[in-house]
Simulated scan of single mutants.
Amino acid sequence: MNTNKNPAYGQALAELKAEGKVPEFVELRQVEHLNNRLESDHGKLKRLIRPTLGFKSMRTAASTLKGFEIMRMFKKGQFDGWIQSVGGGTEVSFINRLFGLHL
């Protein structure tokens, strides 16, 4: 498992192993740049959040972040298989079918 150098990860992994929730063979590698691919994915989301000037409540934060993530998933092509399996077309036609919208 690759993480940053936060010491809490080592303790958490040891506890999970002791509880039997993580196999004993799992190793913790706390090397600064090994998880950059995952960490860099957050940067794009942070750039979307910054102009919103924060959130007033957890409810609005959760709703807004879900919407951002769904749109990013469309952009990354992660819905392509699903779109093709339910009739094909574009993302726009998929949303129209899903929500009954007529743009």
Rank of each mutant, 00 (worst) to 15 (best):
M1D: 15
N2S: 08
N2T: 10
N2K: 03
N2E: 05
T3R: 00
T3P: 00
T3W: 00
N4K: 04
N4W: 13
N4E: 14
K5G: 08
N6S: 12
N6P: 02
N6F: 00
N6T: 03
P7G: 05
P7Y: 00
A8L: 01
A8W: 01
A8S: 04
A8T: 04
A8V: 09
Y9F: 14
G10P: 14
Q11N: 10
Q11C: 04
A12D: 00
L13H: 02
L13S: 04
A14I: 02
L16A: 14
L16C: 05
K17Q: 15
K17R: 08
K17L: 07
E19Q: 13
E19K: 12
G20R: 06
G20E: 12
G20Y: 08
G20M: 09
K21F: 11
V22I: 15
P23H: 15
P23E: 15
P23T: 15
E24G: 05
F25K: 10
F25N: 15
E27F: 01
E27W: 02
E27L: 11
L28V: 11
R29L: 07
R29A: 07
V31P: 07
V31I: 15
V31G: 10
E32G: 01
H33P: 00
H33K: 10
H33S: 07
L34N: 06
L34P: 02
N35W: 13
N35I: 02
N36A: 07
N36H: 07
R37E: 13
R37L: 13
L38P: 05
L38A: 14
E39A: 14
E39C: 05
G43Q: 14
G43I: 09
K44W: 05
K44D: 15
K44C: 09
R47F: 00
L48S: 01
L48M: 10
I49Q: 14
I49M: 12
I49D: 10
R50V: 14
R50K: 15
P51T: 03
T52K: 14
G54F: 00
G54M: 07
F55P: 00
S57L: 12
M58V: 08
R59K: 02
T60V: 04
A61Y: 08
A62R: 14
A62T: 10
A62L: 08
S63A: 09
S63E: 09
L65K: 06
L65V: 12
K66T: 08
I70W: 04
I70L: 08
I70Q: 02
I70M: 04
R72E: 12
R72V: 06
K75T: 13
G77M: 06
F79G: 03
F79I: 06
F79R: 02
D80F: 05
D80L: 05
D80H: 09
D80I: 06
W82M: 13
I83P: 05
I83G: 07
Q84P: 03
S85D: 11
V86N: 09
V86R: 11
G87V: 06
G87N: 13
G89T: 11
G89R: 03
G89M: 06
G89E: 08
T90E: 04
T90G: 01
T90L: 03
E91T: 11
S93Q: 13
I95C: 05
N96R: 10
L98V: 14
L98K: 13
F99T: 14
L101Q: 08
H102E: 15
L103P: 15
